[in-house]
Design a protein around this nucleic acid. Structure first.
Lengths: 209, 209
DNA sequence: GTTTGATTCAAACGAACGTATGATTTAAAC
DNA sequence: GTTTAAATCATACGTTCGTTTGAATCAAAC
């Protein structure tokens, strides 16, 4: 049985609060209170609030990047060139992993990802490693082969569209529930819906200019 | 020739800074400095920082809502039932209006919309009128008629996907420019790309369960 | 010229923030 | 039992924040 481990409890509390209130909306005091730790523990274990943010972001994003990379490896190891739907599944799928139906933690992590992608504070985006860019470039190349008719600019636009849908997805509906919103996304269903939605979008013929 | 009008200059400065640094990342002092106004002017003209945020949000969003509503009216006034591509164009198009190529202000407004949709602070989302919900419900009904095979849940998921793509779209690329990003979106092109992308996505056959 | 209402101004308030400090506790090593 | 390094603690510092205040300025009405 692992001891409470202050460092981990701070990470957990920070992940929770950052996702819920954003970086600037979360005070170090709120984090340590929730973690049951002393105020100075953040400085001791992480150095500063910004470095804590980096640690939280890395812990959430790195497994996703790894899964995306492994998925692409698996596709490229096959005999046939990977199709659009397969690429979409491999790219977007990991963003839905570990988010079972009705899981509070899943929705929270989803929100954290959006927060990481969209928060204007440079402390939030300043942690990035080279891995993300590398993975996205690899997918870009694979999509380019699967969709040779597309201009690089429009392809790039579509890749960002994929990211937008998978990331933003369920966030808004959690923040301001729609009037007659039919039940929050049921985890696994959302994953399949997203793949359907995005595969069709990526496969669209080039926009004629 | 209109006088400088302190109130308007504060609105302009706030729109700029809120889009660039977020709500919590922008101080009232930064706003009044940029507007060339006195610190107390925000309190005098708007009451509080939160109410200033509301005013900024309304000024940006209301014309978009109105255009979306008018576009749907126009489609419904026609003889034939509107198709998916027409609905997508009417819904997503207004989000790209007034954003000519290379326009700094256009990208900024785009960022502001994302900020309004994704900021966790309740001051940012607390301004909403009934108009937004009404328009989205009307589009939901129109899409439901155009896509009768889709379950309400999946349709709702797709509508949110449309919003995600149009809103997030060009934000991330401005915050962390990709390694070999091919030229920022050229305004009108992005609009057409988005419609292509989203019409295909909306038209996808239902996900078989 | 005086009055009046709207606006602008400099200055200050208390609260909350991130961070740093130095003492204290803990627990393993010797 | 003493030593030592890691960890936790209460406390304080300096800054920045949103908001408030009351006097000063302006412009039109009379």
């Amino acid at each position: 049985m692992a001891p409470p481990d202050t460092r981990t409890q701070i990470l957990d509390a920070a992940e929770h609060l950052f996702a819920e209130r954003g970086y600037r909306g979360t005070s170090v005091r709120a984090i340590t209170d929730r973690a049951g730790a002393n105020l100075a523990a953040v400085g001791y274990h992480f150095g500063s609030k910004a470095e804590l943010m980096s640690a939280v972001a890395r812990r959430v994003v790195e497994p996703i990047i790894a899964a995306q990379s492994a998925g692409l490896d698996r596709l490229l190891a096959g005999t046939a060139e990977p199709g659009v739907a397969e690429l979409v599944e491999a790219f977007a799928g990991p963003l839905f992993d570990g988010m079972p139906a009705g899981d509070e933690g899943g929705a929270r992590r989803s929100r954290l990802i959006v927060m990481i992608l969209s928060d204007p504070a440079e402390e939030v985006r300043g942690w990035a490693g080279a891995d993300q860019d590398a993975v996205r470039e690899r997918y870009l190349a694979a999509f380019a082969r699967a969709l040779p008719a597309l201009s690089p600019e429009e392809l790039w636009f579509r890749i960002r569209g994929v990211l937008a849908v998978t990331a933003v997805d369920r966030v808004e509906v959690h923040q301001r529930p729609a009037p007659d919103c039919p039940s929050p996304d049921t985890g696994e269903a959302a994953r399949h819906w997203a793949v359907t939605f995005l595969a069709a979008a990526m496969s669209a013929p080039p926009t004629r200019t």
